[in-house]
């Protein structure tokens, strides 16, 4: 049962950062609330203060800045799906956000919230890691920028300090010759926590069936979303066919360290790293 707490609702980012500076240890920021409310109801957290971020309209923008796309921390998954900017500039992120929860959860849940919760199974995160996105953290003292990959420390653990808020996420815009694929395996087609997922981003090579750059991120297969650098290297600058793809993608099981839980066994998950990666690359190379 939810405990009693004081609710604060800052109107501006500086006001919010001021409150965090003052009460950082006991204040719990809430964006869409799709994770926080469950934890409150279970009694897993019992904060004395909750800071509702929903009035911070400045963090709800999607902007093009030079070659980069800036997404405010409060951009919802639905906003990512509906924005013409993300559809052209970050199609891989759109694919990831489409698989989040259900319509209702996508309407409430935010990119910043998904990152802050830092679930290894968070469905928007592999896309961000594969795109080498950066996260901007703001505090009263200033801002700092980290790669999303480094921001994630463990399940539910991040580099965010108590006095900081996630301000925005920055990712490079898609260019000609780049392709992505997001592949999620869940127990059903909606409202499913990933058993495993993979986001793949590539730049096509000049020769047919080659890739000049590859970035792979696995979800729900390690304590955090995990880059697959060994497979990336193995796939880069060589001619790929079905057979070689089958061979190389097997390296994926060396990249991951999944666990057994009620949804799946560790061994199955590891096999799925291979299967999902194979399917993703097959789509990119031979079907699109």
């Amino acid at each position: 049962m939810v405990n009693d707490f004081r609710l604060v609702r800052p109107k501006t980012l500086p006001e919010a950062l001021g409150l965090l500076d003052e009460f950082g240890q006991e204040i719990e920021p809430v964006a869409g609330g799709t994770d926080l409310l469950v934890k409150l109801e279970d009694g897993r957290i019992r904060p004395s203060q909750v800071m509702d971020l929903s009035a911070l309209n400045e963090l709800k923008q999607i902007r093009l800045v030079g070659e980069d796309l800036h997404l405010g921390a409060l951009v919802t998954h639905t906003a990512v799906l509906e924005s013409p900017l993300t559809r052209t500039e970050a199609p891989l992120l759109v694919m990831g956000c489409r698989t989040v929860g259900s319509t209702q959860i996508r309407n409430m849940g935010t990119l910043g919230g998904n990152l802050a919760t830092a679930s290894p199974a968070g469905d928007s995160i592999p896309a961000l890691v594969a795109l080498e996105a950066k996260v901007v953290l703001a505090s009263k003292k200033g801002e700092r920028t980290l790669p999303v990959e480094d921001f994630l420390v463990g399940p539910g653990k991040t580099e965010r300090r108590r006095e900081e808020l996630i301000k925005e996420i920055i990712l490079p815009c898609a260019r000609e010759g780049e392709k992505g694929f997001y592949n999620k395996l869940g127990q059903r087609n909606a409202l499913a926590i990933s058993i495993a997922n993979v986001a793949v981003w590539v730049r096509l090579g000049e020769r047919k069936n080659t890739l000049s750059r590859v970035r792979i991120a696995f979800g729900a297969l390690a304590p955090t979303v995990k880059r697959g650098r060994m497979v990336e290297d193995a796939l880069t600058d060589r001619e790929l066919d079905e057979a070689s793809l089958k061979g190389i993608t097997q390296l994926a099981w060396k990249e991951v360290a999944p666990i057994t839980d009620i949804r799946a066994s560790a061994q199955y998950r590891r096999d799925m790293a291979i299967a999902l990666l194979y399917q993703s690359l097959y789509h990119i190379l031979f079907l699109s």
């Binding site: 793809l245 089958k246 061979g247 993608t249 097997q250 099981w253 061994q267 590891r270 096999d271 194979y278």
Partner: peptide
């Protein structure tokens, strides 16, 4: 059909 010809070892 499996790319790795069976389950991966422990």
């Amino acid at each position: 059909l499996l790319p790795h010809g069976g389950t991966t070892p422990h």
